[in-house]
Simulated assay, not measured.
Amino acid sequence: MSIKKILITFSKKIFEEREKNFYSNRLDLHGKTVSMVIEALTQKGWDCHQLNVDVPLAELVPSLSNQNANFVFNLAVCSAEIYDQAFLPSLLDALNIPYLGSNSTIHSFCLDRSLTKLSLRGIGIPTTSSIQWSPGDLLPDSLAYPYIIKSRFRNYCLKLSSDSIVNDQESLLKKAEEVFNQTGEKVLIEKFVEGREMVIGLWGNGNNPEVLPIMELNLSREKPLYDAEIESKKGYVDDISCPAKLSDEHKTMLESMAIKIFRELNLKDFSTFHLIFDQKENLPLFFEINALPLLHYKHSAFPEMCSHRGVDYRSMVQKLLQIAMERIRHERN
């Protein structure tokens, strides 16, 4: 039996930047994520090759097409120097190379915070209220502060912080104009809800995706929200509770909602959802869908949730490959 070839695609520059921040006090973990992915797949008999996809498009296309790979284990949130995570799946589809995760349409949709909210409401999932704004637009006469100002499109370069929360119209307009000037796109003005911030992870396909242990973040409430600074400093390892302390009723409700999102929006292989559990209203408010969860070792949410399920990192990688390959076989039949 011939050994099949697999590409591990990632942005070298972004990986190095993130590892510098994530593992500032753990130099032994630098490079560990990609090396463990390779180890896990090699154990299963695959011929593994790394491919940095953050290169000019004229270089990327032949690099992919000339590899003759049977599968791509995709870790790339950016490719061809300027494109977001939706681009590489589109290119792989054009080259007829199967890959881990959802297609480009789903990625584009999930990166658009406004479309995400509209779709959640459309399938009956509660989400935080929001409006879109650009310079010249009138604000509603009565706004119930606080609000949080976000770019409409999620971008690895644009990070949320406590400074994104505003409590009056003057600070709202100032922050909204700042974000608009950075992006040139309409800005999302979202109601800031105080509550328990959680992440739900799923993997699988079809009618029965598996929900991983629900994780609660920012237990110490060091800041009013889990922001980029906390993510860099603590990751999803410290100041968290997994599984989150929930009543059986709330746990069942959250899992059912997560499965509904995964199935109705046609996500593939794995995903994570962020939500705020508004305790005043006794209601979970979903506000982010991530179709390509980060897999940084000893840092990211998805592998940590797997760990709390008793699945170690290498086994997680192997399981993700198995899930994706089963989906591909089903699609081709």
Rank of each mutant, 00 (worst) to 15 (best):
Ala86Pro: 00
Phe109His: 08
Tyr156Met: 10
Thr272His: 02
Glu264Trp: 01
Ala258Tyr: 06
Tyr147Gln: 01
Lys13Asp: 09
Thr128Val: 14
Pro293Trp: 04
Gln85Glu: 15
Met325Cys: 11
Pro140Trp: 04
Val199Gln: 05
Met198Gly: 02
Tyr83Cys: 08
Phe180Ser: 04
Pro284Cys: 10
Glu229Asn: 12
Glu177Leu: 14
Pro56Val: 08
Leu275Cys: 00
Pro146Leu: 09
Gly101Glu: 01
Cys242Asp: 02
Asn25Thr: 11
Pro62Phe: 05
Cys78Gln: 14
Met36Tyr: 15
Arg26Lys: 14
Phe262Cys: 07
Ile131Lys: 04
Met36Arg: 15
Asn181Phe: 13
Ala176His: 01
His30Val: 14
Ala258Lys: 05
Tyr156Ala: 12
Gly235Glu: 03
Val61Asn: 02
Gly45Cys: 06
Lys175Tyr: 10
Asn52His: 10
Leu64Met: 10
His274Met: 09
Lys245Asp: 11
Ser162Cys: 14
Glu190Val: 07
Ser241Val: 10
Met198Asn: 08
Ser171Asn: 15
Ile149Trp: 01
Glu170Ser: 14
Ile97Gln: 02
Leu160Thr: 15
Gly201Asn: 06
Asp227Thr: 07
Gly201Tyr: 05
Lys186Pro: 05
Arg329Tyr: 14
Asn103Gly: 13
Ala291Gly: 07
Ala244Pro: 08
His250Val: 15
Leu202Asn: 06
Asp112Ala: 05
Gly201His: 04
Ala258His: 07
Glu17Asn: 12
Gly204Leu: 04
Glu59Met: 12
Asn205Phe: 06
Glu216Trp: 10
Ala94Ile: 08
Pro89Met: 06
Phe153Lys: 13
Leu111Asp: 07
Leu7Ala: 06
His330Met: 13
Glu288Leu: 01
Arg329Gly: 11
Ser256Val: 12
Ile3Phe: 10
Asp248Arg: 15
Tyr226Pro: 01
Ser114Thr: 11
Leu143Glu: 02
Ile3Cys: 07
Asp312Pro: 02
Ser161Phe: 11
Ala244Trp: 10
Ile148Leu: 03
Glu222Val: 13
Lys298Trp: 07
Arg314Val: 09
Ser315Gln: 12
Leu321Asn: 05
Asn70Cys: 09
Phe270Val: 05
Glu249Ala: 15
Lys268Met: 07
Arg26Gly: 00
Met316Ser: 03
Lys32Glu: 12
Pro284Glu: 08
Met215Tyr: 01
Asn66Leu: 15
Pro303Gln: 00
Arg329His: 14
Phe286Met: 01
Val237Met: 12
Leu139Pro: 03
Asn21Thr: 10
Phe15Cys: 00
Pro243Ser: 06
Ser164Phe: 15
Leu173Val: 10
Asn70Ser: 14
Ser256Leu: 13
Asp141Phe: 05
Gln322Asp: 13
Leu51Asp: 00
Pro293Leu: 05
Met1Ala: 13
Trp203Arg: 13
Ser164Arg: 08
Asp28His: 06
Leu292Tyr: 01
Ile123Ala: 07
Ser241Thr: 11
Lys13Leu: 10
Ser171Lys: 15
Thr116Ile: 09
Ser90Asn: 09
Gly101Val: 03
Leu320His: 00
Arg263Asn: 11
Glu255Met: 13
Asp54Ser: 06
Lys268Phe: 08
Trp46Cys: 04
Ile165Ala: 04
Glu331Asn: 13
Val193Thr: 14
Ser11Met: 00
Leu275Tyr: 07
Phe192Asp: 00
Ile131Asp: 01
Leu29Phe: 10
Leu27His: 11
Asp269Val: 00
Glu185Trp: 04
Leu7Gly: 05
Arg332Lys: 15
